[in-house]
Nucleic acid binder design. Structure first.
Lengths: 198, 198
DNA sequence: CCCATATTAGAACGTACGTTCTAGAACAAT
DNA sequence: ATTGTTCTAGAACGTACGTTCTAATATGGG
């Protein structure tokens, strides 16, 4: 019962994602957002508690999108070869999700959720780090028989941080990745994680 | 002639750097800045044309600080071994300049200079990219005999982007780099730039 | 000593923003 | 048809911010 909604959550998150990807999270003002979807500012507050809640939600969606895919890929890996495949996932994901990539690679969490997570997201937020930690630790154990700090640091560097650094400039310029990019990532993984168990 | 100044440019840029490093560029409000140095807001405008001009200046100082050091290191390199030494420079610089590192690694230029560079900085800004390009190209030519796009992309990845990605999480958390970090960077350089000329 | 000047000091102004408020419209159930 | 509810619509409000304005204060030169 009640009047039919002209603007649903998805319209708003989608428009917010586009605004944030193109002009940064600061450009996601309530006025700009309502102008983008053609809604009055008040309507936004029928769907979201606050601007911060909306921003936190799109950030959460993006992080989960990447993390789920990456973890799924890493779950299949039990050696350096499989790890390299997981490392290449970020480049794939960026191609398939250009807008989301701009959020994840060009900004930090604090630009989207400055203080605490809104109540509706605390559970998902709390699950984020442990899930990634378990995935990396599980792989380390399978591939190297141990999951101490030193190994985890190497795995994280090779599979996440180095690819991240390499991709970022291209996302920033809005240009496609160079031809040899996957080979560079693969070479990095092999070098850092060792030809054998190391 | 004229009254003696209680607050000079350096007091202000220093305080702005600290604010930006600790709480992000958004925290560098004119009010926060004047409170930090104990000056009235009006005095800031005796030294800087605008808040944006001040932010642009501290960004420029930081970028130049890193870039000059890196380029100097790279200028001494003519093979993969020398390149690895240049790649390790970022980790050194971060240790020596923790505040500056937080600016350079945790934010983008657009957070500090959103539109055009202020007139006082356009020359320095214009020199930034060519200097880095020349340094990378020069090294590529010395080490590999060519400086085409593909080689430059590899050099940039190995010497700048990958170390950048690897260092960023530690700067973010305010933690020291892990023990094996330099070896990971070195291994990456060797793997991506090839054992020999490749 | 006095004047020009550079600066401190902080109030004042305009604007942009997030949020809330008031009014009205559309739909479902009775 | 009436009522309750959910939404649109946009004006209104309070706040935080960058900037400018007015006044006072200290310094050096004539």
């Amino acid at each position: 019962m009640g009047r039919i909604a002209k603007f649903d959550r998805d319209d708003l998150t989608r428009a917010a994602l586009e605004l944030a990807a193109e002009r940064g999270p600061g450009a996601v003002t309530v006025a700009a957002l309502s102008a983008a979807v053609g809604a009055p500012t008040g309507s936004i507050y029928h769907r979201f508690e606050s601007r911060e809640a909306l921003l936190a939600e799109i950030w959460m969606d993006v992080v989960e999108s990447f993390q789920h895919g990456f973890i799924a890929r890493l779950a299949e890996a039990d050696d350096v070869r499989g790890a390299a495949a997981a490392a290449r996932f970020m480049a794939e994901w960026v191609k398939e999700h250009p807008l989301e990539a701009r959020l994840l690679l060009l900004h930090h969490r604090k630009d989207f959720v400055s203080g605490k997570w809104p109540a509706s997201l605390v559970e998902r937020a709390a699950a984020l780090e442990p899930a990634m930690g378990a995935a990396l630790g599980g792989f380390a154990k399978r591939a190297f028989g141990r999951a101490d700090r030193e190994v985890i640091a190497r795995v994280r560097f090779a599979l996440l941080d180095a690819p991240f650094g390499g991709i970022k400039p291209y996302v920033q310029e809005g240009k496609p990745l160079p031809p040899g990019f996957d080979q560079m990532v693969t070479a990095t993984v092999r070098a850092v994680l060792g030809g054998k168990a190391r």
